[in-house]
Amino acid sequence: MASVNSRKRKHLAKTIIIVFLLIVAVLVVFPYTLMLLTSFRSTTEILRHSERIWPINWTVAGYIKVFTRAPFFKWFRNSVIITGSVTLAVLFTSTITGFIFAKYQFKYKNTLFFIILASMMVPSQVTMVPSFLIVNWLGLYNKLTALIIPALVSSFGIFLCKQFIEDIPDSLCESAKIDGAADFTIYFRIILPQIRPAIGALAVFTFLGTWNDYLGPLIMLSEVERMTLPLALSFFNSQHSTDINATMSAATLVMLPVTIVFIAFQNQFIKGVSLTGIK
């Protein structure tokens, strides 16, 4: 009798938990659904019938406006170029530097690694002013490279890779060396395949951080054609008002690529994030 009761209670608790989790999931998706629906309503309809959520007259005018009034494809291209180059570069620089700090003995190793660690603690928001001045001084202002070159090295990435590479037994590298493998070959053939999970995690973080960066492009780029996608949303704000329909269409379009990438690689994303928490 008691066991039946407790089984019932357990069942009830499970149902409550599932319902709760579902409600949270709905709350997460809801604003994006609103965005999508609003992007198909004209601005006048939004203002006149604010009580409605579902469009009365479906319109793609907002999307047409985004594509015709704004260089949307150029922004997309800029975002891809910046994010792609930064992600690839960071993967390379982090793994190879992590490899060196994990497996090599050399002078000043500890001092150099301390510099990496210390620079990890300096967030870019703190150094936005001097970073801007340095980029400007180097003549990179208003060039896509202004967002690429300073981001080629990530101290977090180096730190993460070093942690993982340290776990690889030294004997693996040593024996390859005895077999006459060059250092770069060891890195490429032995180290990289072993730390695939770390590479995945780092790729996820770098991709998200760069693709979604708002402050960097806001400060470093000036011309409209050089802008990246996150800046696109303020494009339809005039001095005194906002074109809500065009803004929501732009928001949907900005959201689209990253959502597709996320859904395609959702497991890698979740695994990558979990990994950094454990390490």
Partner: peptide, 21 residues
């Protein structure tokens, strides 16, 4: 995966949607 969606989407999109909608 669902809960992670807002972390993936650009925050400026979410901010705009919350401000407007």
């Amino acid at each position: 995966t669902v809960y992670f969606l807002p972390c993936v989407a650009p925050m400026v999109v979410a901010a705009t949607v919350w401000g407007g909608n």
